[in-house]
Amino acid sequence: MVFTLFAAVIICTGAALEGDYYHEQLLTFIGIFTLLAVGLNMLMGYAGQISLGHAAFYGIGAYTTGALTVHLQWSPWASLPCALIMAGVIAYIVGKPTLKLSGYYLGMGTLGFGMIMHVLFREWTTITGGPNGLVGIPSLSLWGLDLSTGRNYLYVVWGCVLLTFFICDRLVNSRVGRALRAIHYSEQAASAVGVDTAKAKLQVFVFSAVVAALAGFLYAHMVMFISPGTFTFLASVKLVAMVVIGGMASIWGALLGATFLTLLPEHLSVFADYEMIIYGGILMGVMIFLPQGLTRGVLDIYEKFRAKRKGTVED
């Protein structure tokens, strides 16, 4: 029901933006970041495991499809599964030892992984094009339909977002999702009631990596050029910020966080030199006044407002 409504909103927005290239592109970017944030939210918000290297999986998705289509002239549709599998396999290999860590140590482990991947993107020149980036990635088309135009690509990206939301929603409200949330609240108790916590954490880590790779694929075929600068530690931090600002353990929070953090710099550019200061100030303000994130915070304010109107606020 909610998803139908969401789909309708996307279609209408797409139609309304016809020809407005700037906003179409902005909205497409928001879609890509929403994908990244919702995948990371499954790991962070639901299972309570932090990853400070998630941009690496975003990069793995982008570079895998980039290298296959540019160097080997593969069709993007053939390179898509390769990109997803590559990210999944690497996540499995990395996650197996690192997810034994927790808290700060897991943060450090994933941070290190992210940095290693960034060096790899920059230095493995024959495959990645090095610091100059990889040029000439083809755009997407399907059965003769050109998907690269602003509105079509917007639909492709948001279609992926919708599908991912649908999958995440089902996961969250299932035996698997309950186990993940249980790990978040008390790993000790989750394991004591028989959850194989190592397996559950690894599964969701791989899942979030695959979603990030999907975002990377969409990004690569949208801008048709990728360079290491996109997949840095700062990008990973921005993804974490999207999840936290939007609201942990909320699918819609990821959408809100990604939207907020994508639009904010656009609107702050008028402040020129002071942009970063104001950006940081706003983030601090959100965290101080709405520590549960925007989704929960806005709902709380709404509920308080409603209660006040009914005159039932007692304190």
Partner: peptide, 28 residues
Amino acid sequence: ELFTGMTVLENVLVGLHVRTKCGFLGAI
């Protein structure tokens, strides 16, 4: 040691974890 942010029913459902099977793909 409860899963404090989950409902009472969900807590007990996690207790049923070993007696149920649904996996990642099954849930989707």
